[in-house]
């Protein structure tokens, strides 16, 4: 019992909570921007998988982690642009396009993985991984140093993105217009703002962020690629956006909470404790459903989310 409690505030658990939260935060921020522009992208799971593969294969074959990250991001953006073509130009139903993207993306990533690394039955191929980027001095602070300042550089970048993104969305002309597109595309169109262009840009940003999330999974965390590498993180990111009611601060908090629950249950399992860790894992999903019900009156959900825009149709 005391072990169960100790793990709650264990330094290692807290540090790994932030690590686990990183890809969730990245993907959720990207999805939030996409949704603000009115596009519900259910394809992030596939995008993360493709990017994880892109990062992994380039990092391994070109022997450069940075090139790996770059190609992962590139792959993420490409897949999101395919989504943009489907939903923004051709006006396919968004839900369906997102699911198609998942199927296609995951299939493609796994196919290429098997094509590049034929199944041998031996060990799984492994790439290098980034080292932790300890911040000088700060990392020496007891506990806090280990928890906060001994993370990967991408984790710092993800957290740093939050205020930058807040400023871009709330204090720039571009951000104002992006949010308007998600709320009333017709109004924007009549003001000379290209709805299509906005949605392409938003999706590209979403792809970039999901791409970073994918890269984080392969070339930061594990150095591995496997078909289930995303392990539902794309869906969790979607949940976090709703849980966070489309607000950046709450999305950050949600990512950390979900990351923490995962880290906590992992440590309980590692200690061989007989607790139903599955129920801890299910908690984020139940919380998201609860958030949907609770937030419904003051929801920040974009008014035109998920609805294709046709000029001239009202």
């Amino acid at each position: 019992m005391s072990d169960v409690l100790e793990a709650l505030i264990n330094v290692g658990v807290l540090a790994s909570a932030i690590r686990i939260a990183t890809p969730l935060l990245l993907a959720a921020l990207g999805e939030m921007v996409t949704e603000r522009a009115g596009v519900l992208n259910l394809g992030i799971e596939g995008t993360i998988t493709v990017s994880a593969f892109g990062s992994f294969v380039v990092a391994d074959k070109a022997d450069s982690l940075w090139l790996g990250v770059l190609s992962g991001v590139g792959a993420g953006i490409l897949l999101s642009l395919l989504m943009a073509v489907l939903v923004s130009s051709i006006k396919v139903e968004q839900v369906v396009a997102g699911l198609a993207l998942n199927l296609f993306g995951i299939g493609m990533a796994f196919y290429l993985f098997r094509a590049v690394y034929p199944q041998t039955g031996g060990e799984m191929p492994r790439s290098d991984t980034f080292d932790f980027a300890e911040i000088p001095l700060l990392a020496d602070i007891p506990a806090v140093g280990e928890i906060v300042f001994s993370q990967h550089w991408l984790t710092y970048a993800a957290i740093g993105t939050c205020p930058a993104l807040w400023f871009a969305l709330n204090r720039t002309q571009f951000g104002l217009e992006l949010r308007s597109v998600g709320n009333n595309p017709a109004a924007c169109d009549m003001r000379g703002i290209s709805v299509t262009r906005m949605q392409y840009l938003a999706l590209a940003f979403g792809g970039l962020m999901a791409g970073l999330a994918g890269a984080f999974l392969s070339v930061f965390l594990s150095g591995l690629f496997f078909v289930d590498v995303a392990a539902g993180r794309g869906w969790i990111a979607l949940a976090i956006v709703i849980f966070g009611n489309w607000r950046i601060g709450r999305i950050l908090a949600g990512s950390l909470l979900f990351g923490y629950l995962d880290a906590y249950q992992l440590s309980l399992q590692a200690r061989g404790l007989e607790v139903p860790h599955q129920l801890l894992l299910a908690l984020p999903f139940a919380l998201t459903i609860a958030a949907l019900v609770v937030n419904r009156r003051r929801s920040q959900e974009p008014l035109h989310l998920g609805v294709p825009y046709f000029r001239g149709e009202r």
Binding site: Q173, F174, L176, R179, N183, A186, D189, R191, L303
Partner: peptide, 25 residues
């Protein structure tokens, strides 16, 4: 005839949408 307004946003913000200006509002 049918208004094209972004209802959750303020009057000022609605007017500013689509004006080509500096990056910062």
């Amino acid at each position: 005839q049918h208004f094209e307004l972004v209802t959750p946003m303020s009057v000022l913000e609605n007017v500013v949408i689509g004006t080509r200006g500096e990056a910062k509002v």
